[in-house]
Amino acid sequence: MRKTLCSFLLFTSIHSFADSIVEVERAFAVAVPPGQRNSAAFMTLKNNSARPLMLVAADSSISEISELHTHSEVDGVMMMRKINQIEIPSKGKAELKSGGLHIMLIGLKTELSAGSKFDLSLKFSDGSEQDIVVPVESISMQSH
Rank of each mutant, 00 (worst) to 15 (best):
H69M: 12
H71L: 15
A50M: 09
S113G: 02
N38E: 11
R37S: 13
K109C: 04
G127Y: 04
D75N: 04
R51L: 12
Q130A: 13
A57T: 12
A18N: 06
K109T: 03
E73I: 15
V30A: 14
I103A: 05
I139C: 04
D126P: 01
E137D: 05
G107L: 01
A57P: 00
D59G: 06
M80I: 05
I65Y: 11
E137M: 12
V56Q: 03
D59N: 09
S140V: 10
K93L: 06
S121V: 12
T70K: 01
F11T: 08
S16V: 08
R51E: 11
I103E: 06
T70S: 02
H144Q: 08
L68A: 11
C6I: 07
S90V: 11
P33S: 15
R26F: 13
I86Y: 02
T4Y: 10
V30M: 10
I21Y: 13
E87M: 07
I86D: 05
K123D: 08
D131H: 04
D75L: 09
M1K: 04
F118Q: 02
A29Q: 01
S140G: 11
G127I: 00
V56N: 12
L9T: 11
K3D: 07
S138W: 02
H69S: 07
C6S: 14
A41C: 08
M79L: 12
L105S: 07
E25C: 01
F8R: 09
I83Q: 00
V74R: 14
N38R: 10
C6G: 03
I88H: 02
F42V: 07
H144P: 03
I106K: 11
I14G: 00
S13D: 11
E23C: 00
P52N: 04
F42I: 06
N84V: 09
I65D: 14
L5T: 07
D59W: 06
A40F: 09
Q142L: 12
P34H: 01
P135A: 04
I21H: 07
V136Q: 11
L101N: 12
